[in-house]
Design a protein around this nucleic acid. Structure first.
Lengths: 337, 337
DNA sequence: ATGAAAGCGCTAACAA
DNA sequence: TTGTTAGCGCTTTCAT
């Protein structure tokens, strides 16, 4: 750049007004004479003036930036939440700073930088109870949880209605006549996994089926863990007729293990997952799953957060979204694709 | 919060020194007497003082924030680049603001906010030539391209060596004895697709095989487009013995179409992709692909950008990374998984 | 409707 | 080594 960027004062000088008037113009205040405004706008145009966001933040005492901390940025579910949150933030003229923190310590450091140094106006935390990170969450700051409802009653949250989703998934298997329904869970330290297990249990109960602990295997959301889970059933010689995997990736691992063991899906083993990730319909066979509107979760979280920041005291403080059954061929030959 | 956050001056008053001395302490300058430092640090501790990042940005004239604009945040490839970039940025005490712009107009608006308003110190643009967005890229600003090398010679870039990757992939098929090798490309308006097509052509040439335009179908990176592509070959009754899909998602669609048409993979049709996305090894059969280290791309881009911002002159201005063949069973029964 | 003055919380240049 | 004086570029009173 040849000469430094013009400031509000440079524009003022050129337009022959005070810098305050320029400020009024760029902020769209209506108490400026049309001709004065035109004068200022011409000067702005000629000099290529652009307001400096940092200076504005400084003077206004707010950054117009939100942060979203997630265990990682690549998991499709997290990325979708972030994208939904980002789009909504931009709609309200906010930016979203998304960062990943894979462990409590890096989470702590991140929060320290982001919130401690007042770099953002609000914080969205995805999977707050994934590990010990919740200890480092600043409760006296605009905050929204995603993926788990808050244990503390005054904290806002947006999540999937995990119990209901699991109930519906299990019920789908029950309604197809299955009585040997296995469950592969996420890490049991996550509320989400426990809630989904609870929904599974309720569906069995209602169907008059026993809840058999040996039919439940804990996974870690990865395809590999699903594969391992089914393999262990196979080794024990007690292959169920259906499996409810608490997410699609594990369902994919289960289908892989079934293929390797020549178990036909769905005739010998029905499989249902949760998420409806992009390629679920391309699996072989296409995967039946509980489809959730993930970007919406991010969107709602951002809305809530902005309400809190603007002191509007959100009407809903705990939002639970539902998921829809998408029946494909992994549970019935008649399923769609 | 009870009383407002303490400022550098509050701390100074309490410690009985000037605010400047406090500034020196929090910035780790060494020209402070140990006892003075201790005094100040005690005051900081007692008052719970934390420096304000915005004020620092204001005074220093830099934000310590970088931006990365991508077509979207959910595509695994993009998300991986972003994650790699973010991790590297944090390592250097910078933040990364990642935003998505699906079309040129929203790209323009985003750049205007980010760069025009000086909200960030540098910019990484993923897929700059995806559409007309390159017109809106500010060339007089610290900038790094990802996914395509720059047409203008003074712009830095990090990308995959697309020509070579495609050459290697095609060569793999040739070496397996295939002579009817089809190609499914990404959008031909993207350099990446053209370069990969070029590599495909070169491998054929070297093998003495003709480059047949009718064996090339343009896709859009989606699984659906891969599926459609193979279906159209099938309809024409000219199914090739092998297909090189320019990414894994399209390869997945191809495998799906083959399954639907009872074409056996790899015996009747060999398939190879590019990326090695997380579930590639879970496809049926596991997909042979060209594996790239995507986070590394983001990492290198950030490094380059920081070089530009700090020293103004990166040693390498155009970095092309390579990819490795991962042979699985979609090209040969003997492949791994 | 417009301007003047005061600050937001910090860093930088210079002085002591 | 430490303190003083100026800003950074803007918004926000409060006058006029």
């Amino acid at each position: 750049m040849p000469n430094p960027r013009p400031t509000i004062r440079d524009v003022a000088r050129k337009a022959g007004v005070s810098h305050q008037t320029v400020s009024r113009v760029i902020n769209g205040k209506d108490d400026v004479l049309p001709e004065t405004r035109a004068l200022v706008e011409a000067a702005i145009e000629q000099m290529g003036y652009r307001p400096n966001a940092i200076a504005r933040s400084m003077a206004r005492g707010q950054t117009r930036t939100l942060a979203c901390i997630s265990p990682n940025l690549t998991d499709f579910t997290f990325a979708s939440v972030i994208e939904g949150a980002e789009v909504e933030a931009r709609k309200h003229d906010y930016f979203l700073l998304s960062s990943s923190a894979s462990d409590p310590e890096s989470f702590r450091a991140l929060v320290d930088e982001l919130v401690g140094h007042r770099r953002v106006d609000g914080l969205i935390v995805i999977n707050p109870y994934a590990d010990e990170r919740y200890e480092f969450i600043p409760k006296d700051f605009p905050l929204v949880f995603v993926g788990a409802s808050a244990h503390e009653k005054d904290i806002c949250s947006v999540s999937l209605d995990d119990e209901k989703v699991a109930y519906d998934a299990t019920h789908h298997l029950v309604s197809l006549g299955h009585t040997q329904i296995a469950l592969v869970t996420g890490p049991m330290e996550e509320d989400c996994s426990r809630d989904r297990t609870e929904g599974y249990r309720r569906a069995l109960m209602e169907a008059g089926l026993p809840f058999d602990e040996t039919m439940v295997i804990e996974g870690d959301w990865s395809a590999t863990s699903g594969q391992t889970a089914l393999q262990s059933f196979i080794e024990q010689g007690r292959v169920p007729s259906a499996v409810f995997a608490q997410n699609d990736r594990m369902a994919m691992g289960i289908m892989r293990a079934a293929r390797d063991a020549d178990i036909k899906i769905p005739s010998q083993l029905a499989v249902i997952g949760v998420d409806d990730m992009p390629l679920s319909s391309y699996f072989d066979p296409p995967l039946t799953t509980m489809q959730q509107d993930i970007p919406r979760i991010g969107q709602e979280a951002t809305r809530m957060l902005l309400d809190i920041i603007q002191k509007k005291n959100p009407t809903v403080r705990e939002l639970k979204l539902s998921a829809q059954l998408v029946a494909r061929r992994s549970t019935s030959e008649k399923g769609g694709d």
